[in-house]
Amino acid sequence: MSRKRAIRWTLCYAVLVMLAAVFFVLELVTGSAKLSVSEVLNALTGNGSSTSASTIVRNIRLPRALAAALLGGALSVSGFLLQSFFSNPIAGPYVLGISSGAKLTVALSMMLTMKYGILLNSAEMVGAAFVGSMLSMGAILLLSGRVKNMAQLIIAGVMIGYICSALTELAVTFADDANIVNLHNWSMGSFSGIDMDNVKVIAVIVLAASAAAFMLSKPMGAYQLGESYAKNMGVDLKLFRAALILLSSILSACVTAFAGPVSFVGIAVPHLVKTAFGTAKPIIIIPASFIGGAVFCLVCDLIARMLFAPVELSISTVTAVFGAPVVIMAMLSRRSQKGSA
């Protein structure tokens, strides 16, 4: 029977990688300027004769595609970590208000620094977002000690998200006119405007944090049985919990810093991946969620760009349309299992 599972997992991985490749290429070739695959290839390898195509691909589309893939992966892994932490399949950085917390601190620091004519660099943006993530996370952790019911926890998270968003709106209202456009676009969520330097920072943070999350697969698997069993197996609970919180916050902070808050990916993708793979084993699901998140965000970004081109939709508009129903599905499937048990 384990052979059957191995085949299923291999197949699923193959499909995911293929989808990622296909949508990555699509992201590069589609746009207001239609380019052929060979033109894109030439632009990438640097043999391009057409300089405008080369510029478009190398400066705009490639960083955007890479960002969508990396940040999508980061969101999904972050979601999966939070789901493990709270033993709750509908936990994620967006619904728990962690993305909104990051949004608030990033907006505030952007406005403050712009006032003095300073532009934040990538690392500083991530730092600001991380502070906000940890603040929201702290609030959630405080509340989670009091609420035993997972639905209450989610509601608390959504409320924290609303508070942070309201504060962000308030801050934006009083911002200088010049800043508003900038802030407004960013706070709606988008993969546009990310350059290659940003991508390098993103890649370092996201890949390192995801690799670290992967190394936590073993204790995460034990933790799925519950605290007491995990402890009996020799898991250092304090250290493990701290690592989960830190990694999921870094990942979602990175996303918010560069793309603004992106909704529901963190819940929808792990749920879909777990369903497809038929397991929740972290060692399988963490890499699969990463690739799945990349695919999901590439597809959503394509739709955001192309559906009403040249008008671009915010990325959260699209991820919500596809993600929110999956979240509802995840909730229903959980309920039916509880009922039958």
Partner: peptide, 14 residues
């Protein structure tokens, strides 16, 4: 030492 508890296992898809 191994333990066997009455806690309900809520792990998904195991």
């Amino acid at each position: 030492v191994s333990v066997c508890l009455t806690e309900r296992i809520t792990a998904e898809r195991m």
